[in-house]
């Protein structure tokens, strides 16, 4: 099955129209759990990007050898292998950031978004397109994490990437764990509102 989208379109689709966090509402756990700082978002984003791109390419390479009935276990094991790789690499080279993310790096293995991309895209399309699709989805996840982290870090501790920007702490509440739910919920509502507003201004219902 040929894919009619260019590599650029595949990437922007992952970031905007099919953003894993805000549009597809998949992989919510880290978006709520460890999005307290921008740095966490970037780190986990890199890990997910790595796993997504390599799993997509691997599955796409071997798509003709995988029997359809065992495809799901194959996906799971492929993802688990790449997660093990990134887990060991991060633990060895970035122990501090790794400690902050805790168990979430290992949990990438259960992220619905990665399995979904393998099932919907990589097992049908060419290696090249799978690579760009994986890159787009990974970046989309990273952008989502960074945006949530930006809001929470700025409002919670008045800092961005550890630098003091505001000089005061507007609302400590945003750093508290349970605020993750509120921030994600409010942001989803905000994007919905933009969409509604945009359609109305164009004269559409």
């Amino acid at each position: 099955m040929a894919n009619d989208k260019s590599s650029m379109q595949l990437i922007t689709r992952g970031i905007l129209s099919e953003n894993p966090i805000f549009k597809l509402a998949l992989s919510m756990c880290p978006a709520v759990g460890i999005s307290t700082t921008v740095m966490n978002g970037i780190m986990l984003g890199i890990a997910v990007l790595f796993v997504q791109v390599f799993s997509s390419v691997t599955i796409s390479l071997f798509k003709n050898l995988i029997h359809p009935r065992i495809r799901i276990p194959t996906y799971t094991l492929t993802i688990a292998t790449w997660v093990t790789v990134i887990d060991l690499v991060l633990a060895a080279y970035m122990p501090e950031a790794y400690a902050k993310m805790g168990i979430f790096v290992k949990l990438i293995v259960a992220f619905a978004i990665i399995t979904m991309r393998l099932e919907m895209f990589a097992c049908k399309e060419s290696v090249n397109d799978s690579f760009w699709d994986g890159l787009g989805m990974g970046l989309g996840f990273m952008v989502g994490m960074v945006v949530i982290g930006f809001v929470r870090e700025l409002l919670g501790s008045g800092m961005i990437l550890g630098y003091d920007v505001l000089g005061f702490k507007p609302l400590l509440f945003f750093i508290l764990p349970s605020a993750g739910f509120f921030v994600v919920g409010l942001m989803m509502a905000f994007f919905n509102w933009i969409e509604v507003y945009y359609k109305r201004s164009k004269g559409l219902k």
Binding site: P177, S178, G185, N192
Partner: peptide
């Protein structure tokens, strides 16, 4: 519920309140 909050957004807000209660 306001139309922009329908579905997931309101579910997240409710879950946030539960999370605060569980604190």
């Amino acid at each position: 519920i306001p139309p922009t909050f329908k579905g997931l957004p309101i579910a997240f807000i409710v879950a946030g309140q539960f999370a605060m209660a569980f604190l």
